[in-house]
């Protein structure tokens, strides 16, 4: 059934790059195509062993374009996944974006840095009042680190803005000691709306040629985040959730996983056979599970041990 549709295969430096090229060739919006990642590509070392990322874009079947079922709150789908019921199914409540408040919130938090869309909690406001740099709303507090924020580290419980400064300085230090030039920004995102407790500290690294900081399957980024967490929590003597990101890589990965989930679910519905995805770390499996949580026809289970644990999608009985 693929043959009748317009389809194009493109390659690029990154998956995102390849997708953009393909969209240009087809003259379509992202929401009008199904994206299939053929190869994620590899950066290689000093230009050796580099492989381009390859993707296949296929024009979506329906006129309104969205795949038969798309995870709610996909940011760039023009119509937020108005659920078109496949003919074969019995009636089930359609999934609406409102069903997944936590995903919506985390997206907003990630995407819109400067807009204090997440309300500042009373506790945060109180903490803010005790700091030496008042008046900045916590959410919008971004510290740029070209000038060094020096020893604000107090041994007893640090405030959020101190943690922000320490985190920024730590990451800046790590990245430049690794030999890279990059800009580091940190901001605090309140999690209160998503039902999780506490605040997260997001540290964004931006710059040119930072793919090595992400590494194969995000390995380097994971190590960077792990070490940053240890150092910051050691210095502030308290536990803060810290997320380190390079050039929005985590957000891109979330989008990728969401569309992967939607495509795999479509395939399960079409073929009736279970589909196993590649082995993934826990946080990525979680995204898949969440993406298909409210799907009317499929269910997800994780199978396997350790590094070989993968999500299997199968039809609901």
């Amino acid at each position: 059934m693929e043959n009748a549709k317009r389809s194009v295969e493109t390659s690029g430096k990154t998956v995102e790059d390849a997708i953009q090229r393909g969209l240009m060739q087809l003259g379509l919006e992202r929401s009008q195509v199904q994206i299939e990642v053929i190869s994620e590509g590899r950066a290689g070392i000093l230009g050796f062993g580099a492989e381009p990322a390859r993707v296949r874009l296929t024009q979506a079947i329906a006129a309104n374009s969205a795949p038969a079922w798309a995870p709610p709150s996909q940011p760039d789908t023009t119509t937020p996944a108005e659920y078109t019921q496949p003919p074969s199914t019995l009636g089930h409540a359609p999934a609406t974006p409102a069903d997944k408040p936590d995903m919506t919130v985390s997206r907003e938090a990630h995407g819109q840095v400067d807009t204090p869309s997440v309300p500042v909690t009373a506790a945060q406001a109180a903490m803010q009042a005790t700091t030496t740099q008042p008046a900045t709303p916590t959410v919008a507090a971004r510290s740029s680190v070209t000038e060094k924020t020096s020893g604000t580290a107090s041994s007893e419980g640090a405030t959020s803005s101190e943690a922000t400064a320490i985190a920024t300085e730590t990451v800046q230090h790590l990245v430049s000691a690794m030999g890279y030039e990059a800009k580091v920004d940190a901001r605090i995102v309140s999690n209160t709306e998503s039902g999780e407790t506490g605040d997260s500290l997001f540290v964004d690294i931006t710059g040119r040629n930072l793919n090595n900081l992400i590494g194969q399957d995000g390995e380097t980024l994971g190590a960077l985040q792990f070490i940053t967490r240890l150092i910051v929590n050691h210095k502030t003597q308290q536990w803060t959730e810290i997320v380190v990101d390079v050039d929005n890589h985590r957000q891109r990965r979330v989008d990728e996983l969401n569309s992967l989930a939607a495509r795999a679910a479509d395939r399960v519905v079409r073929d009736g056979r279970p589909v196993s995805l590649q082995a993934m770390p826990a946080n990525e499996r979680r995204i898949i599970h969440l993406a298909l949580r409210n799907h009317p026809n499929v269910m997800t289970v994780s199978i396997g041990q350790g590094d070989n644990r993968k999500v299997t999608i199968r039809q609901k009985p």
């Binding site: 030999g179 890279y180 590494g215 380097t220």
Partner: peptide, 14 residues
Amino acid sequence: RVANAIRVLLRASV
């Protein structure tokens, strides 16, 4: 874990 994370960062260093 910490030692291995440091090794990963070393490998990614210029």
